[in-house]
Design a protein around this nucleic acid. Structure first.
Lengths: 141, 141
DNA sequence: ATGTATGCAAAACATTTGCACCTGG
DNA sequence: CCAGGTGCAAATGTTTTGCATACAT
């Protein structure tokens, strides 16, 4: 936990209990993409008394500090993932919502070129491929 | 307006007044990407008395009928565009929210391959490049 | 006629904010 | 100690829904 403490400092955030717990949850989660509600529920299950508002505030701060990335895959709730490692794009299953990550250098390069050709100073980009994952194709209904 | 009438029939929707008006607005709009509120405001300005709930219902029906495409560019409100013509991707200005469209066959092809490699039956895909458009770079603050 | 569509108001969500209190450094 | 963080509840913004009425076929 000294590790997370340092991570928060580096991000310019005071190492408070809620922030440490939430960071821990993100790191421990088997699911790389969790919603604010998911985090809140996990906290409750662990017996912590941290408000949902704080979860939102902390996740937003983490996002601004570059610790996490916020995605709006569907119209519902946003999901967050640790910003560890390389940029990547996502495959999202429309049946089970499972998320798979991928990187493609050719696409990355084309995107840079397209932004440039259109006079855009690219700040970010997101590519989401929706489809039915192999598991869901098998359990077809 | 007989034209829109036929369009609705083809989509399997009764040609009611609200649906005709809303389709008309989408077709007439200079901005290709409008929110439910935008449509509602336009209706009010035209003196129509159509409820916001109806606008949402109709836009959702249009989406299901394949007449329009719904996008969730930011976390805010969804925007809709007529599904006329080819598939394309979007450049969105983070300052002024202006949307520019583009198509890149290389990216399209890579996406198909990536979906296939991951065992995904691709149903859809969306690529959004965020950045600062040339106008906003000029009026920098 | 009659099943469907609409308007209005209320509900349902996701997210944000105001404010008094608590806590980390 | 004191600025900043947190909890709670209330506010916000978007989208959906229940229900009585109106409309297209």
């Amino acid at each position: 936990m000294a590790v997370q403490n340092a991570e928060l400092r580096r991000a310019g955030l005071k190492a408070t209990l809620p922030r440490l717990r939430i960071l821990q949850i993100l790191e421990d989660s088997t699911d790389l993409h969790v919603s604010a509600e998911d985090v809140y529920r996990t906290l409750l299950e662990a017996g912590e008394s941290i408000g949902l508002a704080t979860v939102y505030r902390v996740l937003t701060q983490f996002e601004q500090a570059g610790l996490v990335i916020r995605h709006n895959f569907d119209g519902g709730s946003a999901v967050f993932e640790l910003a560890a490692g390389e940029h990547h794009d996502h495959l999202v299953c429309v049946r089970c919502n499972r998320v798979t990550e991928f990187v493609d250098q050719v696409i990355e390069e084309r995107q840079r070129r397209i932004a440039a050709e259109n006079g855009f100073a690219m700040t970010d980009h997101s590519l989401v491929i929706h489809g039915i994952c192999s598991d869901c194709q098998r359990d077809s209904d």
